[in-house]
Computed example of a mutant assay.
Amino acid sequence: MNIFFYRSFSALTFMKVFFCGLGATLVMDFLNKVGALLGWVYRMDLNFLGCVFNGWINGVYEFKTPAELLASGGTKLQGMVGHYLIGVFFAILLFIVSRIFLLNKREVAAAALVLGLSAAVFSLIIIFPSTGLGIYGWKGGVGLFGTSLYNHLAYGFGLAIFFHFTHLVDVNKS
């Protein structure tokens, strides 16, 4: 591991990475609202996510049906906080990977899209089955699969844009 990684993680850099994670998640939410209005995807349900996070906090990691999950409690605020914190976590992950492997701008953009797809895979094989929707969310219809891919690619796109404009990529490399 190179010394550049350690020198580059200052408080200002952390704030930029934090901002990138929040911004990319906002891009994802905005494009989800647009896509839902156009009828392309399902609208994201932050109350549902709040119930997932509430269950996890209380040690319940699997529900037989979505109705059982919703009956367990949880709030939209919990869903929003958890959703945005996960967005920040993935931004930190991208920053660490970009510094360890000294990625250039194009490579960081590609890595951001791959990270977005990784987040989709996480929701498809971990979150959806734990909520009673089955693997890939098939019990909720094929639209959940497409919605997850759309949303998380939008996140990856937002992350690539925010990393570029906050100059978190090594400017000495092209």
Results as ranks from 00 to 15, higher is better:
residue 82 G to R: 04
residue 41 V to Q: 00
residue 21 G to Y: 02
residue 167 H to K: 15
residue 150 Y to Q: 07
residue 29 D to K: 09
residue 158 G to C: 05
residue 164 H to T: 15
residue 129 P to N: 06
residue 45 D to P: 15
residue 169 V to N: 07
residue 151 N to E: 07
residue 105 K to V: 00
residue 174 S to T: 13
residue 140 G to S: 09
residue 123 S to Q: 13
residue 166 T to Y: 05
residue 72 S to R: 12
residue 96 I to A: 04
residue 24 A to H: 07
residue 173 K to H: 01
residue 25 T to D: 02
residue 44 M to W: 02
residue 1 M to R: 09
residue 57 I to F: 11
residue 109 A to Q: 07
residue 81 V to I: 08
residue 103 L to S: 03
residue 153 L to A: 09
residue 38 L to G: 13
residue 132 G to E: 04
residue 47 N to A: 14
residue 120 A to S: 01
residue 69 L to T: 07
residue 2 N to D: 03
residue 128 F to D: 03
residue 40 W to F: 14
residue 99 R to V: 06
residue 66 P to F: 06
residue 125 I to H: 00
residue 93 L to T: 02
residue 47 N to L: 15
residue 126 I to N: 14
residue 85 L to K: 06
residue 139 K to F: 01
residue 33 K to A: 15
residue 18 F to G: 09
residue 10 S to G: 12
residue 44 M to Y: 04
residue 123 S to K: 10
residue 123 S to L: 11
residue 16 K to G: 13
residue 52 V to W: 06
residue 154 A to W: 04
residue 128 F to G: 01
residue 85 L to Q: 02
residue 59 G to P: 04
residue 126 I to E: 06
residue 99 R to C: 12
residue 65 T to A: 11
residue 48 F to C: 15
residue 65 T to H: 07
residue 145 F to V: 11
residue 106 R to N: 15
residue 123 S to V: 13
residue 8 S to W: 02
residue 54 N to Q: 11
residue 147 T to H: 03
residue 2 N to K: 10
residue 89 F to R: 13
residue 27 V to L: 14
residue 32 N to H: 05
residue 81 V to C: 00
residue 122 F to V: 07
residue 132 G to Y: 04
residue 5 F to H: 10
residue 114 V to E: 01
residue 143 G to M: 08
residue 30 F to S: 15
residue 44 M to C: 14
residue 124 L to V: 03
residue 80 M to I: 11
